[in-house]
Design a protein around this nucleic acid. Sequence first.
DNA 1: AAATATTTTTAGGGTTGTCTAAAAATTATT
DNA 2: AATAATTTTTAGACAACCCTAAAAATATTT
Lengths: 221, 221
Amino acid sequence: MFTFSEENYLKTIYHLSEHSEKGVSTNAIAKKIETKASSVTDMIKKLAEKEVLVYKKYQGVTLTKKGKKTAAMIVRKHRLWEVFLVEKLNFNWDEVHDVAEQLEHIKSQKLIDEMDALLGFPTVDPHGDLIPDKEGNLHPTKNRLLSSLEKNESGICTGVDDSSSAFLQFLDKQGIALGKQITVIEKEPFDDSITIKIDDREMAISKKIATNLYLKTDDHL
Amino acid sequence: MFTFSEENYLKTIYHLSEHSEKGVSTNAIAKKIETKASSVTDMIKKLAEKEVLVYKKYQGVTLTKKGKKTAAMIVRKHRLWEVFLVEKLNFNWDEVHDVAEQLEHIKSQKLIDEMDALLGFPTVDPHGDLIPDKEGNLHPTKNRLLSSLEKNESGICTGVDDSSSAFLQFLDKQGIALGKQITVIEKEPFDDSITIKIDDREMAISKKIATNLYLKTDDHL
DNA sequence: AAATATTTTTAGGGTTGTCTAAAAATTATT
DNA sequence: AATAATTTTTAGACAACCCTAAAAATATTT
Ligand SMILES: [Mn+2]
Ligand SMILES: [Mn+2]
Ligand SMILES: [Mn+2]
Ligand SMILES: [Mn+2]
C-alpha cells in the first residue's frame, strides 16, 4: 500500500518516463510535483527501498515493473474518474482534473471495476488520453477510415468525416452509431464496397460511406 | 479547509453529540476513532483554535455552529456516496462503508451537487440513515401507509406491506415504483379510496392498495 | 472527608513529508 | 585540463499526527 504522496511521485515519474528513454532526473520530478529537489531525493530513496524504482545516486530513477504497474493503475483510475465526471456528472472536460487528482487515490478494486463497466469500458479519457487496461498496458489506437481496414479487422466507430445531417441520418437508419463495433467481413475490389458485421448483422457498405466513417482500432503497438 | 484527520474527528464528535446533550468526552472520541486519549487532547486543542468546537479542560467538547455544519457536510457526502455505490455500482449495502470513509473526504462542491441530482436527491442511505441536506439539516421521515396521509400531503414510495408478486405486478402496471413521488389529491370517505397524483397523472387507488403501500414523508419536525 | 479509581492532560518522543542551507558530484565553458 | 555553472545530495529543522509514561484533575467509594 502506498501513501498519497508516494502515489503522486510514482505517477509523475511514470509520465516523465513516457517521453524519454533515460532515467528521470531529480529536478524534473521536483518541478512537476512543485516541491524541492531535496524532498525528491528523500522520497526516491524510500521508493527504491520499496522496490518500485531503481535509484543510483546522481543518475536519476527508472521505474521497475512493479512501479510501472502501480503507476499505471493510478493513471487508469484518474482517467476513468475523468470520464465518469464528464459522462455522468455533467462536468466539462476542462474542470475534471483537480477532482480526479483526489479520486485517483481511492482504494477499492470493486469500485474501479464497476466504474469501468458503468462507463462501458472506455479506452480514452475526455482529453483524448489513453486509459491503461487492468494490467496497466496502453492500447494505442488510431482513427482510421473504414475503407482502410483489411478483411477481418475490426474497430469501434468514433466519428465521421462528412457530418451532414443527411449522412448522419443514413447512419442512424442503418444502426451505425458511435461506439458500435464493426468488423470487415469482405472487401469487394470491383466497386470498393465492403461487407461489414455490426450487432451480428451483416451489411454492405458503399465506397462513399466507407471513406467517411472513422473507426478506432487496437493496434497493440 | 480541514485535513482528513480533522474531518474524521469532527464527524465522530458530531455522531457522539447526537445521542447525548452534554459535551463529548475525550475517552469517547478516543474509543470511536481508535486512538489514544492524549492524541485526542492534541487534536481538540487544534480544532478549538479553528473555532469548530468549544473546549474547556476536563469538560469535554461541544461543536460550534460552524463545526456542526462542517461535520454534517462530511456525513452528507458519506451517505450520498453509499447510495451511489449501491444504486449505480452494484455494491451491497454491507460493503459500502469502507469506501465511503475514503470518498467522504473528496473536496468538490460540484461533485456532490451533481451526485445528489444523479441519485434523485435521496434522503436516506442504504442503511436507512438520514442524509443531511445542503444546509446540514436532517429531515426526519417516517414510513407511513398511503392510507394514513391527509389530502395534499405527499411522499416518496419506499416499500410495500404485501409483497406478493401479484401486488407488485399491479403496482408496476400502474406505474407506481419505489422512489416515485405520490401526492394525495382527494380522499373519498364513501369507500376509503384515494385519488393520487403520480408523474403528473391522477389516478384512483382502492383502500386495499392504499393500506399496503408505504411512503416516506418529510415531517420537518 | 479521605482514600481510591478513573479520566484527562502534559511531557517527551517517533514518523512522514516538507523545507533551507551547505557540501558534493556532475556537466558545461573557457 | 582547469574553472565555472548546474544538479543532486546531505545535514539539520519543522509541522502534523500519533505514541507511552507520568502528573493532575475529577469522580466514586468507603
Ligand atoms: Mn487529468
Ligand atoms: Mn485527462
Ligand atoms: Mn457508512
Ligand atoms: Mn450508512
